[in-house]
Computed example of a mutant assay.
Amino acid sequence: MNSEIKKIVIDGRMVTRVPHGFARYVWRLADGLRLVRAESRGLPYEPVFLVNATTDLKAFETFRMLEVSSDFLNFKELVEIPKILNAERAAAYHSPTFSSLLWAPCPSLVTVHDLNHRTYGGFKERLYYSRILKRFARNAVELLTVSEFSKQEIAAWLSVPESEIEVVPNALGPELFAKPAAERLASVLSRFGLHEGKYFFCLSNPKPHKNVRFLTEAYQKARSSPALDGAELWPLALSVHGIAQPGSPGIVELGSLMDDEALCLMYGAGALVFPSLYEGFGLPPVEAASIGTPIMVSDIVPHREGLCDLHADEAIWVGPNDLSGWIEALLRVGKPGQPLAPRVDPETMKRVRMRYSVANLGRHMDRIYRRVLGI
C-alpha cells in the first residue's frame, strides 16, 4: 500500500463477543466501509481499527488493526491513544462513542449517541461528560450523532447550532434478515423453556433508563389480573439477570445473550417489548420491525423517529410510565385466545431495511471521512 495514503484511525475496542449498542454501531460501520471499498474498488484512505484483548476481531477482518493495552473507557486510553495516533502519523481519529481524549495529534471526529449518562448516570459518568466529553466534542472537526432527537439535545448541551451536528443513524446487519434454521430456533427456545410465538421478549439491559424493572411490575400485575379468567399469560423473557423479584412467576431471566441466541429469540417471540424511558436511537424495536416481529414499545420521541416508516396500527405504543397501559397491552397480546398482535407489513419491512442499511451507513461515513481528509 502506498505509504502516502492518509490513515483514519477508528476506535473498535468496544466490539466484544457479546456486543451492546455501541459495538453494533461500530461493527456495522466496518461492514459499511467494506461495502464501499468493494463498490469503489478501493478507498483513497486507509481505515485502521484500534482493538484490544477483548475485541472480537472478526468485526474488522480485511482491515488493518492496532492493538491497544488499555480497556475501553479506561483512563489509560487518554495517554495511550494519542501516542499511537502520533506513531501512526494518523490523518484523523474517529471515536464512534463518547470515549474521549484530552488531546490528539490529529483532527478528531466523535459520534455522541445520546446524553443518557447526564440524567441516568452516576457521579463519575456525569463528571466525565461535563469535564472530558464536552471539551472533546466541541473541539472535534466533525460532531456526529444517531438521531434528530439526540442532535437537538447535544446542540443545546454544547450551545452550538444544530447545523454543526450531522446525523448518521444506526444500521441493521444483513445477518438479521436470515431466519434461523428451524432446528436451531427450536433448540434455543427449548433451552429457555419457551414456545415459538407465545412469549414476550425484552432485549435490553438493566440500566435505569431501560425501564425493565417497571416492565416486570406491569407484567406481574397483568399476570394476576382477573381478566385472564384463569388462563396463563405468556412468559416474559428478559435478556438480563437480577431485575425481577426472585421466584417471580412467568419471568425468565436469560442473562447476556450471544448474537445468534438473541436472533432466535427475536424471530420466535410473540412480541418484542421495549419500555425505555430514554433512548438515543433504540435499535431492538427497529430490528424487530425489519423482520416482522410484533412490537410493543414506549411512546417516546426517539422510538417514533426510529420507527417513522411504520403505520400507526403496525405497533402498540404505550407511555413509558403508564402502568395501566402496559398491563392492558400485555393482556391484549399475551392472553390465550386473543387476536394476534399487530404485525409490520412486508412493504414497511422493506422500507425499514432500506433506511437503516449497512450500505447507507458506510457511504455516509465515507463521505464524512473524505471531507475531513480533504479527498
Rank of each mutant, 00 (worst) to 15 (best):
R138A: 06
T145K: 04
S159P: 08
V146S: 08
Q152M: 10
W103D: 00
I154Y: 01
Y120W: 15
S150T: 10
Y120E: 14
H117A: 12
T145L: 05
W157D: 03
F123Q: 06
L127Y: 11
V112S: 04
R131V: 05
R138Y: 13
E142P: 06
Y129L: 07
V112M: 11
L102M: 12
S150R: 01
L115Q: 11
L133A: 06
V110C: 04
T145V: 10
A140S: 15
S108Q: 12
N116S: 14
R118K: 10
N116A: 04
C106G: 11
Q152S: 11
L127V: 10
I132N: 00
L144T: 14
I154K: 00
E148A: 06
G122W: 12
W157L: 03
I154M: 00
S147E: 15
E153F: 02
G122K: 09
V146D: 15
V160W: 01
N139A: 14
R126L: 04
Y128T: 02
T119D: 05
Y129T: 03
A137S: 15
D114Y: 02
A104G: 05
Y120R: 03
V160N: 02
K151P: 13
V146R: 01
D114T: 10
K151W: 14
R126S: 06
L144N: 05
V112Q: 08
